[in-house]
């Protein structure tokens, strides 16, 4: 008798705790979603405000006289089409190169027992830890006279002809580090790859090996096709980080601006453009224009994310990072 009572008691408490947990979860999620969506809503709401709205204390969120004039100004002031093209060519392409090269090197690190494995791990930690800001200036001086271990320099000294190419302001500033697997945040990407490759069953590769496929063929025809999930995750990371990075484009190029560098200097860029086109931009308007520039900047990655969101989240479920 007592036993049954205890059981029912137990069951009711279990039910209440579960209900409480659900309520707690809902409140928590709504609160956090509010915080996360706030900046986005804030941007949109303020971007379409006009001067009367700003002066009107009754207007907080919804504009009474919305105007898309600032969008037009921001679009033309940032030279959006040209900046977008530059971003795609410089940043995004180098991000995509990195997705592939990092997979290649990570496979080498994770699958083969070599004497230098300890050193490789050290290098990996080094590139995760060293921030770009420390490296950027020496890299630029390096690009000015690109050289590999002083070999070209030595030949130039012997022959008297300058063989070291000047790579500043070219695509190679972005592509070369990516090709060698030391580009933007490549350490983290390689880390994710290595974790994934370590979890892949070796049997498949051994079967391929016995069937006479070399390691490169194994890599291309077995490893790459079976690691779609991790490649998707890494691609999104790499592309987004490249899209958002403004330091490298500002430092490496002078005439070829990208979207991020334009946005970083939005105030100056847009005011110069306006002066050249005899358009006056007052304080309220310039504020709206900058917000519009922000919105224009996040639209492409946001669209990409919304399109791929389901796949991305599924792939996160399956990658399984073990630290």
């Amino acid at each position: 008798m007592v036993r049954i009572n205890q059981n029912t008691l137990h069951r009711t408490t279990k039910h209440t705790t579960r209900a409480l947990a659900a309520i707690f979860r809902i409140i928590f999620l709504i609160a956090f979603s509010y915080i996360l969506l706030y900046p986005v809503i804030f941007m949109i709401a303020n971007a379409i405000k006009t001067r009367p709205d700003v002066m009107n204390p009754a207007v907080k969120w919804i504009s009474h006289s919305p105007s898309f004039y600032s969008f037009k100004l921001a679009f033309r002031g940032m030279q959006y089409p040209k900046a977008l093209r530059n971003t795609l060519i410089f940043s995004i392409l180098s991000g995509l190169i990195q997705v592939f090269t990092c997979a290649f090197y990570s496979y080498g690190i994770s699958r083969f027992k070599m004497k230098i494995n300890g050193l490789l791990t050290f290098f990996l930690i080094l590139i995760i830890l060293v921030p770009d800001i420390v490296l950027i200036m020496p890299r630029i001086t390096n690009f000015r006279h690109m050289d590999f271990f002083g070999i070209l320099g030595l030949i130039s000294k012997l022959t008297g002809r300058e063989l070291r190419p000047n790579l500043t302001d070219t695509l190679w500033c972005f592509y070369l580090p990516s090709i060698f697997g030391v580009g933007l945040k490549s350490g983290i990407l390689m880390y994710i790859y290595i974790q994934f490759f370590k979890g892949l069953p070796v049997e498949l590769e051994e079967a391929a090996w016995l069937d006479g496929a070399g390691p490169f063929k194994t890599f291309f025809s077995i490893i790459i096709p079976s690691s779609g999930v991790v490649i998707l995750t890494v691609t999104i990371f790499s592309v987004v980080w490249h899209w958002n990075d403004w330091l490298l484009p500002t430092m490496y190029t002078t005439n070829n601006f990208t979207l991020s560098s334009q946005l970083y200097n939005a105030e100056t860029v847009i005011s110069i453009w306006a002066r050249n086109h005899n358009i006056t931009i007052n304080t309220t308007l310039s504020y709206g224009v900058e917000l519009c520039a922000c919105i224009l900047f996040i639209i492409p990655p946001l669209a990409m994310y919304l399109l791929m969101q389901r796949k991305f989240i599924q792939s996160i479920d399956r990658v399984g990072i073990v630290g």
Binding site: Y105, F123, L126, I127, R139, N142, P177, I179, F180, V182
Partner: peptide
């Protein structure tokens, strides 16, 4: 990769 690390890092 090692070459890249030496040159670029």
């Amino acid at each position: 990769w090692i070459v890249g690390i030496i040159i670029f890092v």
